[in-house]
Design a protein around this nucleic acid. Structure first.
Lengths: 227, 227
DNA sequence: AATATTTTGTGTAGAAATTACACAAAACAC
DNA sequence: GTGTTTTGTGTAATTTCTACACAAAATATT
């Protein structure tokens, strides 16, 4: 038993991890094995331990519950309304993660973890729907300042893939020629030998890779990537 | 005494409230009356109660410690490293507040609360320097999407004041004519009768006021205000 | 093998926005 | 009234943005 002079809320972390399947955004969800909300879908997450930072907790819980290690993971909001957990007062720090789906499909060893398309999400436990919505909003902000494609696409990709990613995140459509021109002018991507076919027939496209050095430059300088 | 099966961290809120004195950004600080860090400057804040949301806690602590009620207050980051408070494990949710200085000078009834210029901050207790730095960074992001001047300037202002505010926040300088043109084209401000002198001599400038209706429109549409 | 289908690659002209820049007039301080 | 400070105003050159269509390359189908 641990006793305190004043009542203490419990603190948890929850992770909204996004992947991109080439067409839609996907979110990693687990199925709850215990009450409350047993059998419901939920965000991976859990209680912060005394000897770990909140950031570390997010990474640990994610690994334990889904077998996944994400490189890009940042806090985006803390949810602290009074009734959000029926058991006790729980305040959760929510994290936004980005992963290259190609690298992880099959890597999640927790059987209950699965990728769900953003536009077909099941009902979620607690206030997790609200948390996912906030994560999407936060990502939309981010995308104006950070080249997010970097972390969602495979190392080599076509401009069409990148465009489709932007369209999925922002919910808009772009003119292919104008999009390409803008991306290339930024100098964030460099061409790579070879071509990549789309699988549905059609001419294979030129392949690019993000230029890490230039990405870091931009990040430092407070750069803006917009459409 | 309050007892739990597992150890619990304490949760606090801390507020970084910015004002604009016409030339520089200022931050509201209190002097600590108790150990640890007794006598040091610190951000206003305190422990979250069981029956209040985290957001409510921020507002309450701010009012109790500084006598201030801010309209614009939003969470920007949660600080949760292990050793940040020597007493016990404390996780703090940090808030960013904006106030019109003209309305509040004198209104802070807590004698220990005072406005400090951003470029002459004293040493701060705990990791509060880090928190202030993060707040500035967060505000710089915000200013691209939200017309922050709205909340920092008095109801009526000149374009020179608005420009100076942007320069103070972003740490850059703008050409006066180009700045004016851009602001006016946005349609966010409407002219008001009268002129406002600067106090150092010189011709008094035209006076403007933010157009609230148009501001809300923009905010909804996910608008961008940039330079 | 021929044909149909899909996707890539490419250019330009008009509109809009951005930048750089200087001097006269108004108000106030002294 | 003289000097100082600050406002108000316009334009030309550059750059960026937008809208838009057709031929060529590769694959899928028969």
């Amino acid at each position: 038993m641990y006793c305190y002079e004043y009542p203490h809320a419990a603190v948890t972390t929850d992770c909204v991890v996004f992947g991109f399947d080439g067409w839609r955004l996907r979110v990693l969800l687990v199925e709850r094995g215990i009450e409350p909300f047993k059998g419901w879908h939920a965000l991976p997450g859990g209680f912060v331990r005394m000897e770990e930072s909140v950031d570390d907790c997010a990474r640990r819980e994610l690994r334990e519950e889904t077998g996944l290690t994400v490189e890009w993971l940042r806090q985006f909001h803390t949810f602290g309304s009074v009734g959000r957990d029926p058991r006790e007062r729980v305040i959760t720090v929510a994290y936004l993660g980005l992963v290259k789906l190609a690298n992880v499909t099959g890597g999640d060893d927790a059987a209950s973890a699965a990728w769900h398309a953003m536009d077909e999400l099941p009902r979620l436990a607690f206030d997790h729907s609200e948390i996912v919505a906030a994560a999407v909003a936060s990502m939309r902000q981010d995308i104006h300042f950070h080249p997010i494609g970097f972390d969602l696409l495979p190392r080599e990709f076509t401009l069409a893939q990148l465009q489709r990613l932007y369209e999925a995140v922002l919910g808009v459509e772009f003119d292919r020629r104008n999009f390409d021109r803008k991306i290339l002018k930024l100098g964030l991507v460099t061409p790579v030998d070879g071509r990549l076919s789309r699988g549905q027939g059609g001419r294979p496209a030129a392949v690019y890779r993000f230029d890490e050095a230039r990405y870091r430059e931009f990040k430092q300088a407070g750069f803006r990537l917009e459409f």
